[in-house]
Amino acid sequence: MRGQARQSRGDVPQPHAQLHATEPVLFRHATASALESPTIEQETETRDELDLPWQVVVHNDPVNLMSYVTMVFQKVFGFTRERAEKHMLEVHQEGRSIVWTGVRERAELYVQQLHGYLLLATIERVR
């Protein structure tokens, strides 16, 4: 799709080109092609929007050590120690913490990693 759009843009006359009798036709063609590209981009964005509202939630677990949970957050999400501790304390005190929000596929991958570290984690649709 992006390749096609680039091809279409190649038909657009250069700014310094002189206008001839045939040019309006060429220009019309180029404009029509250029209009197709934004439509395609629009579709991509819409699909992303549908994918977006998922969040990774970590739930409280009395067995997992606080220091262990902090380490896991740092490893999986690359959080700073401060940020990892903030989420860990949220899990401990509030019972759950939203640690990531984004597209479903990536959220599933994060949950898989968290389960690999034996944390109680789920993905949820953002409501």
Partner: peptide, 23 residues
């Protein structure tokens, strides 16, 4: 443990099938 609420049936069943053996 389940990766989502049980009502997410497709997600949970795929998880059991593909992810759990890896874990």
């Amino acid at each position: 443990s389940l990766p989502a609420v049980e009502s997410e049936t497709e997600l949970c069943s795929e998880w059991k099938l593909y992810v759990e053996p890896e874990l």
